[in-house]
């Protein structure tokens, strides 16, 4: 404390000496910024996948807020809540292309949003390369299966199945 306060200007002895040591004829050494790309640095082989995934989470998130909260209102809150749900109720809603598109969009966005979220969770906590590989393999298999199954159900729904 006492040593720094001896210089009246408040500038420590090192800074004071350093600033005056460099002139136009004797400039300070130039320090290259860290991680700067030069001609020698290898070309990036990675695209902007992580940035696209980050942006997708936000864009799909906004759409899903509307789709999912609307879905909850219809299925669990309005018109008797969960009690009214049954085959006839599903048939009534999927008779309209509007609700088919709604559910299809919700299925795809929610599955991809959730799959990317779980991919991040696996990346964060699974440390062994083999564990990561198997968990992601399982995740992608389950995701593709569920998206395809759900899509098939919406497109091939038959109200007169019986």
């Amino acid at each position: 404390m006492s040593t720094t306060e001896t210089t009246a200007s408040g500038i420590g002895p090192v800074e004071g000496a350093g600033a005056s040591a460099y002139t136009v004829d004797n400039p300070a050494p130039l320090i290259e910024p860290p991680r700067k790309r030069t001609k020698k640095s290898p070309k990036s082989t990675r695209g902007n996948f992580e940035m696209a995934a980050w942006l997708f989470m936000r864009l799909s998130g906004v759409v899903l807020v509307v789709l999912v909260i609307g879905h909850l209102l219809i299925q669990l809150v309005l018109d008797g809540g969960v009690s009214k749900i049954g085959f006839a109720f599903v048939a009534g809603r999927w008779a309209s292309p509007f609700w088919q598109v709604w559910d299809l969009l919700m299925l795809w966005l929610a599955m991809l949003h959730g799959a990317n979220g779980l991919r991040t969770v696996i990346n964060d906590y699974a440390e062994r390369p083999n564990t990561r590989l198997w968990l992601k393999g399982l995740l992608y298999t389950a995701t593709v299966f569920t998206i395809l199954l759900g899509t098939l159900v919406i497109f091939t729904f038959d109200p007169n199945i019986r």
């Binding site: 049954g86 779980l118 969770v121 569920t146 019986r162």
Partner: peptide
């Protein structure tokens, strides 16, 4: 997020029963 995602798998599977029969669903 993880809980909702796991529910979503179950939910798509239960809804898929409309392709089996009205009674199953």
């Amino acid at each position: 997020g993880v809980l909702i995602f796991f529910f979503l798998f179950v939910h798509v599977l239960d809804t898929a029963l409309v392709r089996v029969s009205p009674e199953a669903y």
